[in-house]
């Protein structure tokens, strides 16, 4: 009796652990964004990249949808996603693009924008990078889709691609 019980427990434990390992093998996502999705943005204050202006959450409340994009002139992948940002600027009617220039030099940032085009409706500078932590940023480029209630709808880690571009177009219709 005691032995059968022990046997059952041990077999169940073995199956449980092996099963967990099996399911665990299929999980590959490294970055976790689900803590942020559905929550509201914290208040923030940033200086505008070029103007003597303050950029904060009030600005976001004015627009139906906002895509906050973290970028820098020194970041290679930012160049790769740049064309999608330009297209979003042209094609997504309800969307305003807010570029946050991350740990960059103002001169280089402006050079980048004049060379490749400026997709942003508003440009802010986070020269020390500290504000990025408020947005749960891991590294750049990253983009966060926010509605006018400051609710985070989706977060895109790494350079935007064609699928994600379509996704944004659909979400902001």
């Amino acid at each position: 009796m005691k032995k059968t019980f022990l046997k059952l427990i041990l077999f169940a434990l073995a199956i449980f652990i092996i099963g967990t390992f099996y399911v665990g093998l299929k999980k590959t996502e490294i970055y976790d964004t689900k803590n942020l999705i559905g929550t509201n943005l914290d208040n923030f204050t940033l200086n505008s990249l070029n103007e003597d202006l303050e950029i904060n959450q009030e600005l976001i409340k004015e627009n139906q949808y906002n895509l906050i994009n973290f970028w820098a002139s020194w970041c290679g992948p930012c160049r790769a996603e740049h064309k999608y940002l330009m297209n979003l600027n042209r094609n997504a009617k309800n969307l305003k693009l807010i570029g946050i220039n991350f740990k960059d030099d103002k001169k280089n940032a402006n050079k980048f924008l004049s060379k490749f085009g400026d997709p942003y409706h508003y440009s802010a500078a986070d020269s020390e990078g500290k504000v990025s932590i408020n947005f749960g940023v891991y590294g750049i480029p990253e983009s966060i889709l926010v509605d006018n209630n400051l609710k985070i709808i989706k977060k895109f880690i790494g350079p935007l691609n064609q699928d994600e571009y379509k996704d944004i177009i659909n979400l902001t219709k």
């Binding site: 652990i17 967990t20 390992f21 399911v23 665990g24 999980k27």
Partner: peptide, 10 residues
């Protein structure tokens, strides 16, 4: 060592 794996799966 195993708990994080189990928790992530469950």
């Amino acid at each position: 060592t195993l708990y994080p794996i189990i928790l992530e799966v469950l």
